[in-house]
């Protein structure tokens, strides 16, 4: 495989090509070219992501009910103070942690176990399994929510009738979060399995063979060779889970539980949504948006550093 970077670097000019002295104008034009290619993307980002973010940041220091004829009152950091002292935020953070912890088995543990067990399977069978296991990833969140609501209905749903229970899974404080985690896990487990599987097939078998020649047992090979070599993939999945699981659950929460019952499934993203749209308090919602944005940057930076330190790369 050809590696090597595709970069324009000033190289020594070959003797057969006459040296051309670039005028200042030409040099400027050449310098601008990469920016020209980047311009559409950057313009879109600025207009639709960063400028709104800045507006939101500005709004977070004001109190406003979104009505144009009402004045925006500057309140300094009052919105942030209110956010940080409300019990809701602490609970939402806790629920987010619960979701992340609950998702990790689906995005890391199960995929690794499955991938380890199915290494030998190839060909037609592999294609069939892959197709089935990946399908949930393609289901639209609303459609997925609809069918799960149907399955989890307390009296008419298949789950209760098969298990013989009569629990209202999505409306009982002790089981609501669990149900959401299982549904979200169902959505992504196929994707995670395939990522790990692909990562595993990308591992050079020489390492394993060498270890076996040295007398290592299969278990030891797995533990000391395979897993470490998988670590970039696992780190990626872990990072994705931490950063995105709150977002993955969002359409489900909105359709199935609306953050309930009594707030049992409200995570930070849903709280943000509620503050923005239910409280009609634009300043508070803006402050929450900024807070979570900053929070996630910090978390992402920490995790990336951690991942870099812990993972082994096949260099």
């Amino acid at each position: 495989m050809v590696t090597g970077t595709f970069e324009v670097v000033t190289r020594p000019v070959s003797r057969t090509v006459p040296a051309v002295r670039l005028s200042g104008w030409h040099r400027l034009r050449r310098g601008i070219v990469p920016y020209a290619y980047l311009a559409p993307a950057v313009a879109l980002l600025v207009v639709w992501t960063y400028q709104p973010l800045a507006q939101t940041a500005y709004l977070s220091f004001h109190s406003w009910n979104l009505v144009p004829t009402s004045p925006m009152a500057a309140v300094g950091t009052a919105n942030y103070e209110r956010l940080l002292t409300t019990g809701e935020l602490g609970e939402a953070v806790w629920h987010t942690v619960e979701v992340i912890a609950g998702m990790l088995p689906f995005t890391v543990a199960i995929p690794v176990v499955v991938a380890l067990l199915v290494r030998r399977i190839r060909g037609r069978a592999q294609a069939v399994y892959r197709a089935l296991v990946f399908a949930p990833m393609l289901v639209a969140p609303v459609a997925g929510a609809a069918v799960w609501q149907w399955l989890l209905d307390p009296s008419a749903g298949a789950v209760n009738r098969v298990l013989g229970t009569d629990l209202n899974w999505l409306n009982t404080t002790s089981t609501a979060q669990l149900s959401l985690i299982v549904i979200t896990g169902w959505h992504v487990v196929g994707f995670a399995v395939l990522v790990v599987w692909a990562g595993m097939t990308g591992i050079n078998p020489d390492y394993g063979d060498a270890a076996r020649v040295d007398g290592a047992t299969p278990g030891q090979v797995t533990r000391w060779v395979t897993l470490p070599l998988l670590s970039p993939t696992l780190a990626f999945l872990g990072l994705m889970t931490v950063l995105l699981s709150a977002q993955w659950t969002f359409p489900l929460i909105d359709t199935l539980t609306q953050g309930g019952p009594v707030g049992a499934t409200t995570n930070v993203y849903y709280l943000l949504w509620e503050l923005g749209f239910r409280s009609h308090d634009a300043g508070l919602a803006a402050a929450a948006g900024v807070l979570f944005f900053v929070g996630f940057i910090v978390v992402a930076a920490l995790l990336t550093r951690l991942a870099d330190r812990l993972t082994h790369h096949d260099d």
Partner: peptide
């Protein structure tokens, strides 16, 4: 209209959200 203009380094495509005088 009291326009809301973005601070800092970002170039703004359109300023926008803001309150106005009461009805």
């Amino acid at each position: 209209k009291r326009t809301l203009c973005v601070a800092a380094t970002l170039v703004v495509a359109g300023c926008g959200i803001g309150g106005t005088d009461p009805a």
